[in-house]
Amino acid sequence: MKNLRTKVLSAVLAVSVLGASAVAFTGCGKKDTTNDSKVTLTNVSYDPTRELYESYNKIFAKHWKEETGQDVEVTQSHGGSGKQALEVANGLEADVVTLALEYDVNAIRDAGLIEDGWVNEFDNDSSPYTSTIVFLVRKGNPKNIKDWDDVAKDGVGVITPNPKTSGGARWNYLAAWAYADKKYNGDEAKIEDFIKKLYQNVLVLDSGARGATTSFVENGQGDVLLAWENEAYLSIKDNPDEYEIVTPSVSILAQPSVAVVDEVVDQRGTRKVATEYLSYLYSDEAQRIAGDNYYRPYNKEILKEYSDVFDLNINLVTINDFGGWDEAQKKHFADGGIFDKIYEKK
């Protein structure tokens, strides 16, 4: 019996050593070492910025080469904003994050990877470009949807992602809230009723913004899609004769946030290039790329160049009207918050 036990043990040991060395072997050599001629950056972003950063990475590489003579290669990662933030907090090695909302960057800060005060590191609360929430309706607007009231009407099918799983969808929800807030003069019971009615019209509550667009565009669900302005324009660009954009009377200024991930850049020695990567987003050239991708440039002069694209007269509230993200999150989206109440059992 004793003999058997030693055998089992030695087998256990042998395999553990083998396994550990295998992991160590595959693990090593993956780490990027920065040499002088080339530097790599990882930009962890959210879903709708793919096209934007594809163009931007090219001009930034050119800019950086001119400035320093160094080649820079940017690896992109895209996904739902909340999920991306979570992965960075869990150890996904991102030099910079360019996410959908401040709240997600704060989550990385809370994990200890980003220093406090990141919001003030770049202009405009670290949002080089902004967007807003609009309605995408089918051509000719058969349900005659003009404003938020029409979205909450009986018989209108609404497509929007779930605010609990999608950062972008929180902007949708808050935009509707802002409208009702104006309409009912801050009477919370009435606002809640309005929001509840609106969400009762939701046919498909996708987990992410892109999934919602697919449900609306590809699978023909619903009459109106609550979408980011840039997403809506992209859908129109792809299918010009099938959809229209309706801008509501009140919407929200969606401010996607960018930040340098301090812990990672210090470890990899990439702080300089990472900071320049984000601050160059504010250059005229980059602002125009944002505009071309249907994001509203931060730079007022350049925004004016796109006045034929964007409705510049829209009445926009900001997240500060909700007391900031931490407040809004707690009140509306946390477990047991108002959004959960909407879906309470009937």
Binding site: V23, A24, T26, G27, C28, K30, K31, E87, N90, G91, L92, E93
Partner: peptide, 14 residues
């Protein structure tokens, strides 16, 4: 410390 990356890297996928 050892420079081993498991998740968000190839070993994690494997």
């Amino acid at each position: 410390e050892l420079g081993i990356k498991v998740i968000f890297a190839v070993p994690g996928i494997i």
